[in-house]
Design a protein around this nucleic acid. Structure first.
Length: 931
RNA sequence: GCGCAUGUGUCGUAAUUGGUAGCCGAGCCAGACUUAGGAUCUGGUGCUGCGAGGCGUGGGGGUUCGAGUCCCUCCAUGCGCACCA
C-alpha cells in the first residue's frame, strides 16, 4: 500500500477529535508546560500559508513536551473584536458578530486540516460576553487603583484616600507622586480634603487612577472616526486603513502605563526574548536621565521649566524654545508679538502629524517678546515658540544650546541667534567647526562656564546637577518617551467600558452587573452630533437612569490577559481560579509576530504586572521565552498590458512596448508561466485578451511583497494540504529555513520533503507494499543511526531549531534505507521522534506496529551515548611546533596523561597506529586524525 | 540620524564551545530501470586548473597555531524608533 496521506490524515483528525486526545487538565503529579501562539484576528481573507508557520512550530514543541512527560497546555482562540469587521458592517450593514462568526468558522476549518494538537475545549473569543465580562472586570480594577510610588506598585484607591484623609496633598514623603500625573493637583490639607464634596473628591481621585479620564492630546483619525494609541499610528497614518492622523485635544480614557515604565524596562533583562524585541521595547519606553531647570520670567512671577540631558551646557543657552501647545505661550507673549505668535500657532496646529513629520527639515518658529533670566548668570534670554519642541515630551520646553545641539543649531542659524561655545572641540576629531555645524559629542572640556570650566563633560554633568539642585533651580529627573495609552475608541465593535456617569462624574458599574453587554444598534456610523455609535443604542441606561460611557475598549484590551483565561476558560466566578494560575503560571513558550513588540507585548506585560500588584496572580511577567516567527512573504505575479489595448506582452518583451504592470492571481500561474485559459476566465474583461508570447509561453514578472488579498499573491494552505497532505505542509514550512527569518513563499522543493515522507513510509513496507517489520535484534550500525538522530532531534527542538531537525530525519531515513533496516524496535523509536513533525503518518505507522494507544501517549526515546562512539582516533594538538597531545579518553589515555603530555608532531605520529595522512592540530580539543 | 538583525554554492540553507566550510533539500548534468509517471534507483555538481595544486563564507584590517564564528572598520539589505531636548 502506498502512502495515502488523504485517508490517513482524515482518519487521525477524526480520531483525535472523537477521543479528545489533546484536552488537558491540571495534574499535580506532572510538570506543566505552557505553549502559546498569539491568537489570530479572524479576517475575511482566511488563513494563508504564513499563519501556520508559527502554529506548526509551537505544535511541534507541544507534542515534543508531551512525549517528554510534561502536562502541556496548548490552547487556541480568537482576538475577535476589531476594526475590519466593523468597517464591513458600516459598508454593508451586516452585524460584525455575524461576519466574525463566519470568519472564525472558516479559520477553524482550515486549522483542523493541518493536524494541530490544540485543546479546543479551552477556546476563547474576546468578543464573547463570557470572556469580556472579565476584561471589564479588570478595567474596574484598573479604575479603582492608583500607583503608589513609595511602594512602587499599584494599590487600591482606598489607600490613597486614607493618605488624603490623614496627610492631605502633597504627601510629606519625598516620592514624586505627580511625576506621572498630568493634571495639576491643587494643594490641600487633610482637613480640607474632608470638607470637599463628593464631586470634588472624585475629580481629584480620577487624576490618580490607573484607568483615568482626562482632557488629553490624542491621535485622532477622522477616516476611522476614532482615537488611536501611539503604536497604532505608523508614519503619521493609521496602521489599519492608512488614514491620516492628527493631534486633537479631547476627553479621553487612558491607562497609566507610564507608572510601570521603569519596571517594564528593568524586567526586560530577565526575559529570554530576542534582543531586537527587547531593544524595540527599550526604545519605545525611551528612558532618559536629565535635569529639569526653571528659568524665571523677566517681569513676571512665573517660570519656564525645561528638561535637559545636558545640564553641563547650561552656560551655552542662548534662547529658550517652548512648544506651540505649551500653556505658557498665551500668558507670556507680549502685545507686540501677539498677532504673529497666534498666527504661528494656528499654522502649527493645523498641520497633521504626517505633514509635521514630513517637514522635519523645515524650520519654523516665532519670538514671543518674552525673556527669562539665566539661573546662574542672570542674563536675559529670549523665549521662542517652535514646533520642533514637542508638547508631549519632557516639559514641552527646551533650553536651546545651539553650539552643542544640532536642532537648536539649525534654529539659531535660521533666525540668526547667538551660538556661544561652552565645550572645547577635542583635537583629532574631524569636526568642521562651529560655523558649519554643532558639536554634539559628550566629550571634551568645558569653557566659558564659570564653575564648570576645565571639567570633562561627564564630570561637568554631575557637577551641574549638584549646583542646580543646591540653588533650587531644578532637580535631577528621569523622563520617558512612553505615553499613557489611549483606551477609549469611538467605535462599536469592542468591549463596552463599564462606566456610567452621575453628575458628570464617572463611576464603575457594579461587578454583579457584569458583563455589560454590547447593545444592539441599527447603524454602525457615529451619530449625527458626533457621538460614538453606542449613543444610538435605545433605552441603554444604567439602572434605567444613568448614561453609560459610549466609547469602547481598543483591540488590545482583550489580548492583554487572554493567556490567563485559557487556564480556566469556563470559570463564571473569577477571571481565573487561583488553583489554575498557581499550577500553570506563566507561558513557557510564546510564539508570534514581531510586529507586536511595542503594542500587545508591552500591554500584556503591563496588565500582568498590574494583576500581580493586586495579588490576583502569582506571576509578574506573562512569558519567559518568546520567539518571533518570520513573515512569509508572497511572490506577486505581474502581467503587462499594452496601454490602450487589451493585449498582454510576456515579461522578456515588455520593454519593447508601452505597458502597465498589473497584479495577476498567482494561483493561475505555474513557475511564473501564465495559464492563458485560466487568465481569460479569471476576469470578464480578459475574455478577449490577446498575447505577445516568447517561446510560445507567457512569462510573468515577479516581486516579493507582503502576502495580501489585494496583491493577488495569497497562497492558502488548503491547496498544499490537498495536493501533498498536512504532514508535508508541516515539514515543508519548517524546512524553509530558520523560524525567525522572513522568507518568500515558494513551493520549490516541497517535493523533497514529500519524498522524504514516502521513503519513511517505505521503511515499514516491503516491495509489494505490505507492512513488514522484523523482530530481530538491531545491528550496531542501526543503533548508531537511531541514537545519533535522537540526540540531534532532542538538541534541535530544545533550541527551537526545527529546520535542522528535518535534515537529521532525512539523513536518518537515508541511512536506514541503505542499511535495509526494517527492525521493529528501531523503526518504532524513529516514528516517535518523527511524530511531532508528521503526526498523522506517525499515528498510522504506530498503529500498524500494533500499538493500541495514540502515539501522543508514547515516551520520547532514551538516548544511549555509548552507541555513538566513533571508531576513529580522536586527537588535538600543537602550539608553535611544540605539541601538546590529547587522546580520546575512551581509548587509551587518562585525562591527566593527555594534559601533561607534550610531544612533537613526529612523536604523535609514533603514537598513532598506521601513518596518518593528516593531523589536525588543536590545543585543548579533540579532532579527527585522517588515516 | 540612532538602535537591532542579517550577509556562506545556481537557490533555500548547515556548520551547538573558534577546529577538515558547504550537511540536508531544490535545481542542473550523466546513467540505470521502465506499462513514460510530477515515479524509483546510481553517480556527479563552490570557483579555478589537464594535473599536483591554488582560491574561496559582503570588502578591508586585527587577535589566534587555527576565524563563517571573536575584535575594529567600511559596504549592502531588512526591521524598529525618529525634531525625544
Amino acid at each position: 500500500m502506498e502512502y495515502n496521506f488523504r485517508a490517513i490524515e482524515s482518519k487521525w483528525q477524526n480520531y483525535w477529535r472523537n477521543h479528545q486526545s489533546y484536552s488537558t487538565n491540571i495534574d499535580a503529579q506532572k510538570a506543566k508546560y505552557y505553549v502559546l501562539d498569539m491568537f489570530p484576528y479572524p479576517s475575511g481573507a482566511g488563513l494563508h500559508v504564513g499563519h501556520p508557520l508559527g502554529y506548526i512550530a509551537s505544535d511541534i514543541v507541544a507534542r515534543y513536551k508531551r512525549l517528554k512527560g510534561f502536562n502541556v497546555l496548548h490552547p487556541m482562540g480568537y482576538d475577535s473584536f476589531g476594526l475590519p469587521a466593523e468597517q464591513y458592517a458600516i459598508q454593508t450593514g451586516q452585524h460584525p458578530s455575524i461576519t466574525t462568526e463566519q470568519n472564525i468558522n472558516r479559520y477553524r476549518e482550515q486549522l483542523d486540516k493541518i493536524g494541530f494538537s490544540f485543546d479546543w475545549s479551552r477556546e476563547i473569543r474576546t468578543s464573547d460576553p463570557s470572556y469580556y465580562k472579565w476584561t471589564q472586570w479588570i478595567f474596574i480594577k484598573l479604575f479603582h487603583s492608583w500607583y503608589n510610588p513609595s511602594t512602587n506598585k499599584a494599590e487600591p484607591i482606598e489607600t490613597l484616600i486614607q493618605l488624603f484623609e490623614t496627610k492631605g496633598f502633597p504627601l510629606d514623603n519625598n516620592s514624586d507622586l505627580t511625576g506621572n500625573i498630568e493634571s495639576e493637583i491643587p494643594v490641600f490639607s487633610a482637613d480640607e480634603w474632608k470638607t470637599f464634596g463628593e464631586k470634588k473628591q472624585q475629580e481629584i481621585l480620577l487624576t490618580f487612577r490607573i484607568a483615568y479620564l482626562s482632557e488629553a492630546w490624542v491621535n485622532w483619525c477622522a477616516g476611522l472616526g476614532t482615537v488611536l494609541a501611539n503604536d497604532e499610528v505608523k508614519d503619521g497614518v493609521s496602521e489599519r486603513g492608512g488614514f491620516p492622523v492628527e493631534r486633537k485635544r479631547m476627553p479621553q480614557w487612558s491607562l497609566r502605563i507610564t507608572a510601570y515604565a521603569d519596571r517594564l524596562l528593568k524586567d526586560l533583562d530577565d526575559l529570554d526574548w530576542t534582543d531586537s524585541i527587547k531593544e524595540a521595547q527599550r526604545n519605545w519606553i525611551g528612558k532618559s536621565e536629565g535635569t529639569s531647570i526653571r528659568f524665571k520670567l523677566k517681569n513676571q512671577n512665573d517660570f519656564v521649566e525645561v528638561f535637559t540631558t545636558r545640564p553641563d551646557t547650561v552656560f551655552g543657552v542662548s534662547f529658550v524654545t517652548i512648544a506651540p501647545e505649551h500653556e505658557l505661550v498665551d500668558r507670556i507673549t507680549t502685545d507686540q508679538f501677539r498677532v504673529a505668535v497666534n498666527e504661528y500657532i494656528t499654522m502649527a496646529k493645523n498641520r497633521t502629524e504626517r505633514e509635521r513629520q514630513a517637514e522635519v527639515k523645515r524650520i519654523s518658529g516665532q519670538f514671543t517678546g518674552a525673556y527669562v533670566k539665566h539661573p546662574f548668570t542672570g542674563k536675559d534670554i529670549p523665549v521662542w515658540v517652535g514646533d520642533y519642541v514637542l508638547a508631549g515630551y519632557g516639559t514641552g520646553a527646551v533650553m536651546a544650546v545651539p553650539a552643542h545641539d544640532s536642532r537648536d543649531y539649525a534654529f539659531a542659524k535660521y533666525f540668526d541667534l547667538a551660538i556661544p561655545q561652552v565645550i572645547e572641540i577635542p583635537n583629532g576629531t574631524d569636526h568642521p567647526g562651529l560655523d558649519k555645524e554643532s558639536y554634539d559629542e559628550k566629550s571634551g572640556k568645558l569653557i566659558n562656564s564659570e564653575f564648570l570650566n576645565g571639567l570633562d563633560v561627564k564630570v561637568a554633568i554631575r557637577k551641574a546637577i549638584d549646583e542646580i539642585e543646591k540653588n533650587n533651580f531644578g532637580k535631577g529627573r528621569i523622563n520617558y518617551r512612553l505615553r499613557d495609552a489611549a483606551f477609549g475608541r469611538q467605535r462599536y465593535w469592542g468591549e463596552p467600558i463599564p462606566i456610567f456617569y452621575k453628575d458628570g462624574i464617572p463611576y464603575t458599574i457594579d461587578e454583579t452587573d457584569l458583563p455589560l453587554i454590547l447593545p444592539e444598534i441599527d447603524k454602525f456610523q457615529p451619530t449625527d452630533d458626533g457621538n460614538p455609535p453606542l449613543a444610538r443604542a435605545k433605552d441603554w441606561k444604567y439602572k434605567g437612569e444613568y448614561e453609560y460611557e459610549y466609547t469602547t475598549m481598543p483591540g488590545w484590551a482583550g489580548s492583554s490577559w487572554y493567556f490567563l483565561r485559557y487556564m480556566d476558560p469556563k470559570n463564571d466566578n473569577e477571571f481565573v481560579s487561583q488553583e489554575a494560575v498557581n499550577y500553570w503560571k506563566n507561558i513557557d513558550f510564546y510564539l508570534g509576530g514581531a510586529e507586536h513588540s511595542t503594542g500587545h507585548l508591552l500591554y500584556v506585560r503591563f496588565w500582568t504586572k498590574f494583576l500581580f500588584d493586586l495579588g490576583c496572580i502569582p506571576i509578574n511577567e506573562p512569558a519567559k521565552k518568546l520567539i518571533n516567527q518570520g513573515m512569509i512573504q508572497g511572490v506577486s505575479a505581474f502581467v503587462y498590458r499594452i496601454n490602450g489595448e487589451n493585449k498582454f506582452v510576456s515579461y522578456g518583451l515588455k520593454d519593447q512596448y508601452d505597458t502597465t504592470a498589473l497584479h495577476v492571481d498567482v494561483n493561475i500561474t505555474t513557475n511564473n508561466l501564465l495559464d492563458i485559459n485560466k487568465f481569460r476566465l479569471w476576469r470578464e474583461e480578459n475574455k478577449d485578451a490577446t498575447f505577445v508570447l516568447e517561446n510560445d509561453q507567457y512569462i510573468c514578472g515577479t516581486e516579493v511583497e507582503k502576502m495580501s488579498k489585494s496583491k493577488w499573491n495569497v497562497v492558502s494552505p488548503d491547496l498544499i494540504v490537498e495536493e501533498y497532505g498536512a504532514d508535508t505542509l508541516r515539514l515543508y514550512e519548517m524546512f524553509l529555513g530558520p523560524l525567525e527569518q522572513s522568507k518568500p513563499w515558494s513551493t520549490q522543493g516541497i517535493s523533497g520533503v514529500h519524498n522524504f515522507l514516502r521513503r519513511a513510509w517505505r521503511l515499514f513496507h516491503d516491495k509489494e507494499g505490505n507492512f513488514n517489520v522484523s523482530d530481530e535484534g538491531a545491528s550496531p550500525a542501526e543503533l548508531k543511526v537511531l541514537h545519533r538522530t535522537i540526540k540531534k532531534v532532542e538538541e534541535d527542538v530544545e533550541r527551537f531549531s526545527f529546520n535542522t531537525t528535518i535534515s537529521s530525519f532525512m539523513i536518518c531515513v537515508n541511512d536506514l534505507t541503505d542499511l535495509k533496516c526494517n527492525n521493529r524496535s528501531i523503526l518504532q523509536e524513529f516514528i516517535i521522534l518523527l511524530s511531532p513533525y508528521a503526526p498523522h503518518m506517525a499515528e498510522e505507522l504506530w498503529e500498524l506496529l500494533g500499538n493500541k494507544e495514540s502515539i501522543n501517549k508514547a515516551k520520547f526515546p532514551k538516548l544511549n551515548e555509548s552507541y555513538l562512539v566513533e571508531d576513529s582516533f580522536d586527537y588535538p594538538i600543537s602550539i608553535n611546533g611544540k605539541v601538546r597531545f590529547k587522546m580520546n579518553l575512551s581509548l587509551k589515555l587518562s585525562k591527566e596523561d593527555v594534559e601533561q603530555t607534550v610531544l612533537s608532531s613526529e612523536e604523535i605520529k609514533k603514537h598513532l597506529q598506521g601513518s596518518p595522512k593528516k593531523i589536525i592540530v588543536v590545543p585543548g580539543r579533540i579532532v579527527n586524525v585522517v588515516l
